[in-house]
Design a protein around this nucleic acid. Structure first.
Lengths: 240, 240
DNA sequence: CGGTGTGAAAGTTTTCACAGCG
DNA sequence: CGCTGTGAAAACTTTCACACCG
């Protein structure tokens, strides 16, 4: 590393970075920011890994996909690595986000301090309900849905959040895409159908809990030899 | 399939089910419930897969880990498959959940209809702030944190949600575990350190958005040949 | 025919292990 | 020495392709 013939213009054919790597990158960054705030200057791949439950090799391999950031015998400098990670993730510049849906959850998210940590901010909020439109929540005025497209395009907004009831989610998603949004966080419990150039991340609270009920159930089930959780029971009666 | 010498007592050594399979199972179930509600009786693996963006083979392989649920030439019966999935995920019986943290987000989650869909319900809510304790939100009285352990153990509660500010999250997690909780959904932006028998699922809104900013940025970057997003640029100056 | 269940092949991600560096 | 960066091996996951079934 530290080779000074900085070969920036590298070969153009790249295997796309796996999603799971990107999610670990975010965890590395979150942890690095905590470490830096606590005054730590450098960190090794094994320290960083063990803080997060990953192996040292995994940390190095993940970082190695994007460049060479470490110093042999030393580790990584927190400040440098933070900056590099933010460059990679795209959060060294602000990301205004639009939110659609100003119900319970939407209003709570409007007040959530913690987007800001990574340069995200809710730029505008929209709702279809005339009773909500015009209210100001957490300093953000709720606007009517008709203003969505103009707001997105005039401010070059690229990301949106869907916090509407499930029966409206697909339509809202379509409107966001039509307005030019390129990425959506969807809190409604439905699989959205969208063009492939639009990125989606979904958060379904019932599904998160289901992951736990499975894990907690199968832990016990295996100990007891429950066939459903130790594979291969056969089905019950026939179809008719 | 449909072999009637129902070999329930199968071999005890099992490869654990991958997490990614469990998350797809939840998506299958969510979609099946929608289909059943719309009156559909049966569905094939390729239909179900294409509704969710998976291949038919993937659907069959995932289900095949747990048993034989389909009918050749027909597909799967929605009602049967729903029941089987709920058995597998453990959601054929109710799951009372405790919530710690009754701020903006916590209160919004108290009002969230949609846990119920999969048999989860928030049984009790706790907060350290004396100003919040005693309030009733969405029909649930906010209790002081001291009552957490007694509530968990006396009702046999196995799952908890952490919705407190980040600086209190680890301590709250420790208290939940000490009280006997076996699985936690954590909304605070921190990696919790807990004994291995406790399951954790994390939701960090800033990280969800980062996944999008990466995807949206790198899509453009690749088109332009940005070296950070087309791998292998070298670092800047030396360490000193 | 239409569709499942499933071994075998292909592809992907993680771990190993070690050369090389400051 | 301690630690990175990285090929090679191992482990794991997905896709293929086809026997079999109603």
């Amino acid at each position: 590393m530290n080779d000074l013939h900085t070969h920036s213009g590298e070969s153009p054919s790249e295997s796309p970075v796996p999603k799971v790597v990107v999610s670990r990158l975010s965890l590395y960054l979150r942890e690095l920011q905590r470490l830096e705030a606590s005054g730590q200057q450098t960190i090794s791949s094994s320290q960083l890994g063990s803080l997060l439950g990953f192996s040292d090799a995994q940390v190095r391999k993940d970082l190695g996909l994007f460049g060479q950031f470490g110093y042999p015998g030393v580790g990584y400098r927190c400040d440098e690595l933070i900056r590099a990670m933010r460059d990679i993730l795209g959060t060294n510049h602000p990301w205004p986000v639009v939110m659609v849906g100003a119900g319970n959850l939407g209003q709570a998210l409007l007040g959530y301090r913690g987007f800001g940590r990574q340069n995200f901010s809710i730029h505008a909020a929209f709702d279809a309900d005339p009773a909500k439109v015009g209210q100001t929540v957490q300093g953000i005025r709720i606007q009517p849905l008709d203003e969505l497209a103009a707001s997105v395009s005039s401010h070059g907004i690229r990301l949106g959040m869907i916090v509407v009831p499930v029966q409206h989610a697909q339509e809202v998603a379509d409107r966001l895409v039509a307005a030019g949004v390129e990425g959506i966080v969807n809190f409604a419990p439905i699989t959205l159908t969208l063009p492939p150039h639009v990125q989606i991340v979904s958060v379904d609270l019932a599904i998160e809990l289901e992951q736990l009920s499975f894990a907690v159930t199968s832990k016990l089930a295996k100990a007891l030899g429950d066939p459903l959780h130790t594979t291969h029971q056969s089905k019950g009666a026939g179809i008719g």
